[in-house]
């Protein structure tokens, strides 16, 4: 049976994502761990994350998770980042007065702003919380069986702007257009929470568990 390491760096609730993985593939070995050997031995790696990026990055560095992430990405095994686990892969974030991230992919994490408005001039709440439509920007094994413009559950105040258009796997709009999924070789990363996005989200997790990391 295949195994997946859910990297535990002490931030947020990993129970949800572990339960969702077990639900879509009963028998899968889910390791919630920060142990480098456990991560190295796993068939797949998932980097989750909620909370403030400064605290997340501090824990990632303190626990040596930065090296584990870099190794997993270069190993070619399927890698999935979720929410702050997506943002952490960028160059830097505007949050907490500016924080350097892992710089695995060129891009910035930006604030929605306090005076965000929709096209009709109505003010929009921040955080962006709830179900929004995700526009797929490429064909990818992780989108298999998921209709374009399906709704996924989001909760975040900062968004990713990828520097390379070729790495954008999906976009969304909330006052501004922004990038909500990245695809590059064996890496896929999303801003939304598939583990909380009912059928569409569970399908994405199932696709990830079935993916060999090839395009």
């Amino acid at each position: 049976m295949s195994s997946i390491a859910v990297i535990d760096y002490g931030m947020g609730n990993l129970h949800s994502v572990a339960k969702a993985l077990e639900h879509v593939q009963p028998g899968v070995e889910v390791r919630v761990t920060a142990d480098p050997q456990q991560v190295r031995d796993a068939d797949r790696v998932l980097l989750p994350g909620v909370g403030a990026i400064r605290d997340c990055m501090a824990e990632i560095r303190r626990l040596g998770v930065d090296a584990e992430v870099a190794e997993a990405i270069r190993s070619g095994k399927p890698f999935l980042g979720i929410c702050v686990g997506f943002q952490a892969l960028m160059d830097s974030s505007e949050e907490n007065g500016g924080v350097d991230c892992l710089a695995e992919f060129p891009g910035q994490v930006k604030f929605f702003g306090e005076d965000l408005q929709d096209q009709q001039g109505q003010s929009l709440k921040v955080p962006h919380m709830g179900w929004n439509q995700v526009k797929q920007a490429c064909q990818h094994p992780l989108w298999d069986g998921i209709a374009d413009l399906s709704r996924f559950y989001f909760v975040h105040s900062y968004y990713v702007r990828l520097a390379q258009a070729g790495q954008v796997a999906a976009t969304c709009e909330y006052g501004v257009p922004f990038d909500v999924a990245l695809a590059h070789k064996n890496v896929f990363a999303v801003q939304f929470h598939p583990e909380k996005s009912q059928q569409a989200g569970l399908k994405l997790l199932q696709n990830f568990l079935n993916w060999d990391g090839q395009l």
Partner: peptide, 30 residues
């Protein structure tokens, strides 16, 4: 509930300490 229901789950009632919160989040509340 968190093992079977894959939409956000809020738990309220009797939340008075950070330990109460940690318990509920660890149980699967979002």
């Amino acid at each position: 509930m968190a093992s079977e229901v894959f939409i956000p789950l809020t738990v309220g009632g009797g939340i008075r300490t950070c330990d109460d919160i940690r318990r509920m989040l660890n149980a699967g509340a979002d």
